[in-house]
């Protein structure tokens, strides 16, 4: 049985949005991706075996929707990104620096980094969600860490 929409939004909305934003870097596109995911959820006949299964499904569909979003890129500009970031009200400036640094990574790195650090997924699980090989995920994580370490003060070796 498909859970109630408001419950789903409350439980998963922000984390799906964060995943979509890490790809789109644009509020409206990211919200569109989450909306597309939720609409597919209510269209789908998928039987979810567990909360973990549901969460992984939601993340996979949101990530794919974010990549596929039908929005022309040339209508976007950096002003909207800056304004949105300024509106987030980071308490610590280093939090903003971190998000800027992550969002400056190549797209294919960003989502791997996000699923690892935000969602706590291991390499194998990320590979399943993104339908990539584990080696590809490992390489992208490795390269991302190198870039983040060079850009961010206090980013630790792992």
């Amino acid at each position: 049985m498909t859970p109630d929409l408001k419950e789903i939004c409350k439980k998963y909305g922000d984390r799906l949005y964060a995943a979509a934003f890490s790809i789109c870097r644009q509020q409206q596109d990211a919200e569109d991706a989450v909306q597309e995911c939720l609409i597919r959820l209510y269209r789908s006949d998928t039987e979810f075996e567990s909360e973990e299964h549901l969460k992984a499904w939601l993340l996979r569909v949101t990530v794919n929707a974010a990549k596929s979003i039908r929005r022309t890129f040339w209508n976007r500009n950096r002003t909207s990104y800056e304004e949105y970031m300024d509106s987030l009200g980071f308490e610590d400036p280093s939090d903003r620096s971190l998000m800027d640094a992550v969002l400056a990574l190549p797209e294919k790195y960003r989502i791997v980094v996000h699923l690892h650090y935000y969602e706590g997924y291991r390499t194998r699980e990320i590979a399943q969600i993104l339908e990539l090989s584990e080696n590809t995920v490992k390489t992208r994580l490795f390269n991302s860490r190198k870039i983040l370490k060079a850009k961010l003060e206090g980013w630790e070796d792992e």
Binding site: Y17, V34, L88, F90, L98, G120, W155
Partner: peptide, 17 residues
């Protein structure tokens, strides 16, 4: 680890409308 804590604190600022 510390990197994970920093990452989560930063991205927890993102909320749907």
């Amino acid at each position: 680890n510390k990197n994970t804590q920093r990452y989560q604190r930063s991205f927890q600022n993102l909320h749907l409308s």
